[in-house]
Design a protein around this nucleic acid. Sequence first.
DNA 1: TTTTGAGTTGTTCGA
DNA 2: GTCGAACAACTCAAA
Length: 453
Amino acid sequence: MWFRRDLRLADNPALASAVAAAGADQGVVPLFVLDPALSTPAGVPRRAYLAASLRDLGAAVGGLQLRRGDPAQEVVAVARAASATSVHIAADFGPRGRVRDRQVESALAAHGIELVRAGSPYAVPPGRVASKTGDPYQVFTPYSRAWRDHGWPPPMIAPRGVRWTRPLASHPLDPEPVPGGLRLPAAGERAAHRRWHAFLDRGLDRYAATRDRADLDSTSRMSVHLKWGEIHPRTMLAELARRRGAGAARYQTELAWREFYADVLWARPESAREYLRGEFASMEYDQPGPALTAWCDGLTGYPIVDAGMRQLRAEGWMHNRIRMVVASFLVKDLHVDWRHGARHFMRWLVDADLASNQHGWQWTAGCGTDAAPYFRIFNPTLQGKRFDPHGDYVRRYVPHLAQVDEKWIHQPWTLPGGPPPGYPAPIVDHDHERRESLRRVERLRGRSTVESQ
DNA sequence: TTTTGAGTTGTTCGA
DNA sequence: GTCGAACAACTCAAA
């Protein structure tokens, strides 16, 4: 059993497949390969979280077979040492994972070992739902209807009495140095289930009404557990189906978004790096410079933006609504290409999922699937007042504003005497940059019209 | 085959 | 202060 993004024992079809193949007489090797090639895009917070999750999984199986190196070599080495006839995985639909799995598959085949794909990180695997013309959906709502109609199998329980074996020496799981002050959530399958049930009990009923409020702890915070497969969405959907109300319906829709973006990325793997809507190739963006640095450091002078960017560095996580606000600010107010922001998010988010991250950014930038209308530009002051009405979220992450009254908290430059010492004045004027953004889209449209004639 | 209506997340402007 | 219109273009599905 080669674990990758499915660090759990319950509701794990690949594990069930491995256990069935082993039968009564043979053991199952719980393998995880630390791939040095993947440590570049994954930032320190994500690797630290992974290490904690692997420790938890290791405890559940009496020790993981941990290897470090090229998966094509390591998986073959372990499989041969175990005299295995098959290696079992959950299918990976990401651009890199697909290539890697094909390489491992042929490396195994050279030794007569089969790579068996069973299950995926999704309730409905990418490619399974298509529009009437057979093409992948490009609009969320029709996709989500088809996704719901498609349905999914019920969850599977964890196999019992598995004889875990480790034919080779394990690579030590070095503790990742966690940057000072970084607060990571509890990792592992049990932590994921605890969090999920706490949310079902205390958060679901008010979820639809309060999920956008940054100052309240009103979201499920399940993204990191889903990212590492510590719980399967199918398990969550089964419990949601037993509940009534707007919260359950809304949460199901949010899970559908995750699957929609995985489907889009599977259909268009290049969209991890390139504009989904090709005409944006001629969109004018500014070279990233001090403005990008100020955004990353939470020093833009717009409190809701700065609070979000500082939450990201403090916790490896950011509230969903605030992700949209800071993304809109980078693209529409600072005129920086979405890919710079997406890269920063990938580096810092513990829940960083390539499909959701890149396509969330493309949506904000207006170049993605079902993209935001070009005129939908977030006003950081209004968004702050609406989704952090008393300023508690801002005060939590921006100490220099801790004493500011809610009347001025989202526009401290209007304070009598200006912003408090240590907090910057706005680096740009939102109203001015909003109009500049609209002008650039106008020019983009003008150009693409000319080109198409 | 053609037409029509709807489509995550907003803001500004003018009546 | 409130409220509706306007701000594109395109995809999808139903009529």
